[in-house]
Design a protein around this nucleic acid. Structure first.
Lengths: 383, 383
DNA sequence: CCCCATTCTGAGATCGATCTCACATTGGAG
DNA sequence: CTCCAATGTGAGATCGATCTCAGAATGGGG
């Protein structure tokens, strides 16, 4: 029923003014009826509702944003939306946003600081109600501080920016990796290689003795996973061998196969590989099958991230699963929680904040999402 | 350099009024300097630019939208952004949007008509400059007509809505499938099965004799691929056997394995499988390897969509590649082309449109993106 | 019968950028 | 010296929803 818009009159979207005119009341009265505040007589209410139906009126969100300062839009800033992790997380974010009646603007950074800065600026000028971001850098976060500085809630996803008091949602990368390595050790492996990607800015990890000291502070998945690896080794009293650790820059994809080859060339050759992200898992599996190295007969393999192919290849790959969708949901939940209570953690009260110890959700609430280990066929007993 | 916003004053984002005040000129003058129109003296221009720098002023896009009616935002409505095809397409759309200085709002429909209708309404009320959509239904397109009716450009992606004069970007599904089937026939296969997904609303395909007559009209990838299959068979003079064709509803994922099993149970068993989408390819490969059926020794396989696992499994799967990223780009290019020239193909001049035959880009320009066949190891000679 | 509280209504301001229009200044040509 | 074009500037309107505030009805108690 009702009248589809665009049928009769002069094409323009009907505004509240049109509704008011048709109902024979003032804009204020129409607004009161629709907004459900103040007083309005039954008669006026009926006429307004009728006019709304007849005209197919729908409020203009832009004007509403203008007036209220709230847009009902949030931003998601990630490296690359076509990446499986981010697109799954995005879906989680969208689902929560839908529940909250909000929309999502996506921006890709390709892990370039400049793009990220631009993205935050644009989002701010769109008056977004909040931002979920996977920060390019844990060091340069001036742009991110600028967002909270503008009173806009921020949640960081996958990477952590704890030192500037920003909520974050991360997987328990360190514990998950530690557990995976412990399993390999339990299977009798003594020489276990670690293959991961790393951002250029990250310092070379290592320095075994001080591992525990480094646990606190800015966090990136790759570093945390490396820490878990080191922890497991040292806990088992195994030596950490430099030649069994390869961290290739994330933006040099062809370095990955070389890294795997280099690790395989170590003497004596390791008996197990842990690949700390999906790209590495793929490269490792690829090279191993190309060289005809039997899994898990000659080489065990455990990877991070549960991609669909890990169940299609033979042997099926044992992996640590990171619930990307749930992480997206969690981040969005946290963001909307912040939006709901505008007591602004870290906003303008920043200058003299030092003293307050924060009752419950102090500064920078950190949600750690549990991972799950899926045992399949790629990790076996050491020869 | 410059002053980071939020440092000194009372927290609010600086507006043009603040800039004007600081420069000691009127808002109109400041706007003229920034907008580069009208006259302004060098002195005023300098003072305004200085004020902009000092205040870290950035125009409010919401206010600009309000005034101009153009938001610099486009909408992307798809079934599920976590799907590899859509997230790749999304990336293409984002890249073009970035070039055009626009942003993208994403909405998921899960292929539910209601969600799609809501999504279009929300986007319209956000005053988006255009919409890229993968329509749920080729039959109910009232909402989509409502978008163009509001003067907002629309491009449909992957699925085609030619009858209401909307631009579309699709892969050459029919030709690509026909070629793939022809290859199988060339390898000596006579019994070739077709496995695809289908929307509930789609009529059962078939009716071999009338295939050519059905080519024109609303198009969905699965139907087009089925048509290509039929074409190839009939062109080669091969019979179309009902039991070798399985179309399972897209929303009944567990039906896929059953469908594969059913086709394998046909007597005599087919010697080749063509899987028309990535889900089917996965199910088929999965079942074949589970049953220990040798590929391509006992069964050849060609699939649609180039997922990363198709090169990791043995044998590597030969596939028809659909350039999702490029399709996203193409759709966005087309959308921005429409936005640039507001001569509105199919807008309000719809009532008496019949006569106009359209010079160049008439009504509903259809871009067909070529696919590519990647020959790998899963299709061999028939036994 | 008066007065005040309650209910109801509309004029107008607001958000921020942009644009029109009217009104200054100039300067140079006639 | 006059006049008009070219140049420069600011007041105010506009986009649409919302909210404040002043004021108009109405009704019941004193």
């Amino acid at each position: 029923m009702a009248t589809e818009p665009g049928a009769g009159s002069g094409s323009r979207r009907p505004s509240l003014k049109d509704v008011a005119a048709r109902a024979g009341v003032s804009r204020a009265s129409a607004s009161r009826v629709l907004g459900g505040y103040g007083y309005s007589s039954q008669d006026v209410a009926d006429r307004v509702m009728a006019a709304v139906r007849e005209l197919g009126y729908e409020p203009d969100r832009v004007a509403r944003t203008m007036r209220s300062g709230k847009s009902g839009v949030i931003g998601f800033v990630c490296a690359d939306i076509s990446d499986a992790f981010f697109s799954s997380a995005m879906r989680g974010i969208c689902d929560v946003a839908l529940r909250e009646g909000a929309q999502v603007i996506v921006m890709n950074t390709d892990d370039k600081p400049g793009q990220e800065r631009d993205a935050t600026r644009v989002l701010l000028s769109h008056k977004v109600d909040g931002v979920i971001i996977t920060p390019v850098s844990v060091r340069e976060h001036a742009h991110i501080a600028a967002i909270t500085g503008a009173g806009v809630p921020v949640v960081s996803l996958d990477r952590q920016l704890s030192d500037i008091g920003i909520d974050s949602v991360v997987a328990d990368n360190e514990a998950a990796t530690e557990e995976a390595i412990r399993r390999l050790i339990g299977l009798g492996h003594r020489r276990i290689a670690f293959l991961g990607s790393v951002q250029r800015e990250e310092p070379p990890v290592l320095r075994v003795g001080k591992v525990r000291a480094n646990v606190v502070g800015p966090s990136r998945p790759s570093l945390d996973r490396a820490r878990g690896y080191l922890r497991a080794l040292t806990a088992a009293g195994l030596p950490v061998e430099r030649e069994l650790i390869a961290l290739v820059p994330h933006d040099a994809p062809d370095g990955r196969l070389e890294a795997v080859a280099a690790v395989l060339a170590a003497e004596p050759r390791p008996s197990a590989l842990f690949t700390a992200d999906s790209y590495m898992t793929r490269s490792a599996f690829s090279l191993l099958s190309e060289r005809g190295i039997a899994i898990p007969g000659e080489m065990s393999l455990i990877g991070f991230d549960d991609l669909e192919w890990t169940t299609l290849v033979r042997p099926r790959i044992s992996v640590v699963v990171q619930p990307a969708y749930d992480m997206g949901r969690a981040a969005a939940d946290q963001l909307f929680a912040q939006i709901a209570r505008p007591d602004a953690p870290g906003a303008d009260a920043r200058a003299g904040a030092g003293a307050r110890a924060g009752a419950g959700a102090g500064r920078g609430h950190r949600t750690v999402v549990p991972t799950r280990f899926i045992e399949r066929d790629s990790a076996g007993a050491a020869p």
